[in-house]
Write a protein that binds this DNA or RNA. Structure first.
Lengths: 213, 213, 213, 213
DNA sequence: CATGAATGAGGATTCATTCAT
DNA sequence: AATGAATGAATCCTCATTCAT
């Protein structure tokens, strides 16, 4: 529970929730991420949360609203680091090189993904089926984040650190490599032994220099 | 319908299906990939297929069996190219270089993914929740394919074409780059304009040489 | 049950219903008329009909559709006699006097109301709350019937049998007297002893001559 | 609100209610008469009244008690005029004729019905389903009022103003004519244009002399 | 007095599955 | 083999009512 509480704090710092509401959210996250949204019954969530089924519907008008109000704040949480930190880093330290930037970015994301794992699983599963979430995702995450990344890439290209290539293509290549690593690490094979520092380093070197000798 | 028929032929060449059964499969694939397995009702599939609901259960004991018998053959289909073609290519033409191999691999996969798109979507969505599929996937795809890839990588490393790195790590980096491209192309942003040849080339160069100048 | 069957035949001559569907209709009419639509649960109807709750929803998409498909055909049934019979009577037998016309009309209605009593109760209760029914009632019954009545009244006025008074007002007075009688007889005080022939006669004389000496 | 307040004053002169309680009653009357008792939720009433749901149950043990305590006093209000005024009128002014009596009675009722319209609607809807209300209605209104009416009718018959007819039948005919008018006027077609004085007069003449020439 | 969160029984409706035809 | 009516458990959700604050 203490771990869940941490997750909650991470997700909802400022907002005030009643005790029961917190339990509902924790239970919903657990069930949704284990069985999927559609396959989870509100009755099941209620039991796991130790509340009456009606209580869920006092706080969330529908089951879908419960889902959305779990996922939506996550969107904001996930862009935060990109927009605020990274952007400034690059502008404030013009001497900084692409390698350090990548390292910071991956680590940043790694910690976040690790903490928000179950919620991210839900997000991945449900965004394709929930137009509301999809729209939010495209507007808030995809677009905003992508725009920042393009700026950063152009910055490093201008400094001569990166090769010439349309920034959009480069962004795709770098981003999928990073998320390829993070998803392999935390979602596909979380039970394997991982030397995070080493794999992070390999991923960075791969992004920068590829695998050819 | 001709496109669906092609998909079916692709998926189930040898097997003999009644006309109704084919319609059921096509309808199920469409619904499952659009709304998800759990959110699709058998009644809906029956209507879309133009058969009675009972007919579905004459061919498949349960709804889950319908899902599995759609996804399972896909597994075999997807490894085929890796195991049969690629493996032989490398062994038969020892002079071939890694770049050509990558190019063939990506193209191979690209055509397949394009054709099997809806089924692949279902696979991605449902494998996490269906232990039966998960096991099949791990045993048939992940393991077998990974083993082959490791061999191929070692082969190129031995030929001095690739840098020294644990083949497993290298496999992860290359594979996620390839699938990062293919998923971006066909699943995340299928509606964007894509110059496939160019992006394939960029992906290959990225895997080989990275983005650093 | 035989009485219910008669009611059903009366209500739905030509249409074909399955056995279970008939039972559902009979049970619904009984419950709706006894406790009101909103206070009747589908579970209760199912039990009374001896079918599974799901069976109700196989035949009627919603509870409201069940209500409407019970009440709607009644509307047609109730106007039939007015439009077809009465209208022709007056036109075909120009010598006929208002008294005989009234007698036939009341008797006609009396037999119908007696037979359709429970359904009429439902109609009275639910029309105010179901816009769909209300509209149908206004369009089909109220307007059509009223138009015919006006014609009949004008006919008798022209023949000098009725006093001068706006036909609409006269229609209201006559109609409410007739329904006042029928409702007193069958809805408000059905358990009292009624000498129907005598009371019909009194009602007719009242409509024609009032109560003043 | 001033109109509602008037209604309240009309309904509950002497009793003392808290401000919130008045709001609850007003809200309940509005909702009950618009959607019916069974289809109105206490939550809805609470919102409309601007009070907490619990507050309703502080004043009324159950939802049904709320209904009854709205309808019950109405019963007394509605008989009042009959028993007190009319009765005395006839006894005190033996020379008065039936026509004037009818006129006074209708007008009396007309004003009352107009003011109490929403509550009367509720009464009509719910009496058939609430045995408690039904009993009260039969004992207090139907019986008492009917007894008075019989006396009045006999009085006028003795004075030779009315024809010979069992007073009960005559009561039914006159009463349904009056209420037929009032209900047409205020409940069935309130939105039509009505010349009240004229229609009242027509109704009186109809009751006295009928429609025959 | 008043609140409103909490309850859990009960509501309408959906669903996968069965089975007589 | 195919049907589609029938099932009843399960689903999401609503509601009157309670009770700690």
């Amino acid at each position: 529970m203490s771990e869940d509480e941490l997750l909650l704090e991470q997700l909802f710092d400022e907002e005030k929730f009643t005790d029961k509401q917190k339990k509902i959210i924790v239970a919903a996250i657990e069930s949704f991420s284990e069985k999927g949204y559609a396959a989870t019954s509100t009755n099941e969530i209620a039991k796991k949360a130790g509340v009456a089924e009606g209580t869920i519907f006092r706080h969330y008008k529908t089951k879908k609203e419960l889902l959305v109000s779990i996922i939506a704040p996550l969107m904001t949480k996930l862009i935060g680091p990109v927009i605020v930190n990274d952007f400034h880093k690059v502008l404030d330290h013009p001497y900084e090189n692409a390698e350090d930037f990548l390292r910071a970015t991956i680590e940043n994301r790694r910690v976040l993904i690790k903490k928000l794992l179950p919620v991210i699983k839900i997000m991945i599963q449900e965004i394709p089926f929930q137009p509301e979430l999809k729209q939010q995702f495209l507007d808030q995450i995809a677009k905003k984040v992508f725009d920042r990344i393009l700026i950063v890439i152009k910055g490093f290209q201008d400094k001569g650190q990166l090769i010439e290539m349309p920034p959009a293509s480069m962004a795709r290549l770098a981003v999928t490599s990073i998320f390829g690593y993070l998803f392999s690490r935390y979602i596909f094979f979380p039970e394997s032994e991982w030397d995070d520092e080493l794999e992070t380093e390999r991923t960075i070197q791969f992004i920068l220099h590829g695998i050819a000798k």
